[in-house]
Simulated scan of single mutants.
Amino acid sequence: MTLSVRRSVAVLALGAALVTTGCGATSADRAATVDGTVISESELQTTMREVNAMEPALLQSSLSPSGTLTALVQAPVVLELLAGKGIAVSDSVARRTASERGLADPSEGALEIVRLATAIGTAQQGGQITEADAATLQERLGALDVTINPRYGRFDPQTASVQLTQPGWITSTDAPQ
Rank of each mutant, 00 (worst) to 15 (best):
M1C: 06
S4Q: 08
V5K: 10
V5D: 15
R7V: 14
R7P: 02
R7H: 11
S8W: 12
A10K: 12
L12E: 14
A13W: 08
L14C: 12
L14V: 14
A16D: 13
A16K: 02
L18E: 05
V19S: 07
T20N: 11
T20F: 13
C23H: 14
G24Q: 13
A25Q: 10
S27Y: 13
S27F: 13
R30H: 04
R30K: 14
D35S: 14
G36S: 11
T37W: 13
V38M: 09
I39W: 01
I39Y: 00
I39L: 12
S40E: 05
S42H: 15
E43Q: 10
E43W: 01
Q45G: 06
Q45M: 07
T46N: 11
T47R: 02
E50R: 07
V51W: 02
V51G: 09
N52D: 15
A53W: 00
A53D: 14
E55C: 01
P56T: 01
A57K: 01
A57T: 05
L59M: 08
L59D: 11
Q60S: 15
S61V: 07
S61Q: 05
S64V: 05
P65N: 14
P65W: 12
L69E: 01
L69T: 00
T70G: 00
T70L: 00
T70F: 07
Q74N: 06
A75G: 02
P76V: 05
V77P: 00
V78C: 05
V78T: 10
V78Y: 02
L81D: 03
L81E: 09
L82D: 03
L82H: 07
A83V: 05
A83E: 11
G86I: 04
A88S: 13
A88V: 09
V89M: 05
S90F: 06
V93I: 09
R96L: 08
R96A: 11
T97P: 04
S99D: 05
R101A: 00
G102I: 07
A104P: 07
A104D: 15
D105P: 02
P106K: 11
A110Q: 05
L111V: 08
L111W: 00
L111Y: 04
V114Q: 02
V114G: 06
A117D: 07
T118Q: 13
T118H: 08
T118E: 15
I120A: 14
I120V: 15
T122Q: 09
Q124A: 13
Q124S: 10
G126L: 08
I129C: 03
T130Q: 12
T130W: 11
T130K: 12
A132H: 07
A132Q: 09
A132D: 13
T136V: 06
T136F: 03
T136I: 03
L137V: 12
Q138C: 04
E139F: 00
E139S: 07
R140T: 02
R140S: 05
L141C: 01
G142W: 00
G142I: 02
G142L: 04
G142K: 02
A143P: 07
L144A: 04
V146L: 09
I148P: 02
N149L: 12
Y152Q: 11
F155G: 02
F155Y: 15
D156W: 01
P157R: 05
A160V: 04
S161I: 06
S161L: 05
Q163W: 10
T165C: 10
G168L: 10
I170A: 08
T171D: 15
S172K: 06
Q177C: 07
Q177A: 14
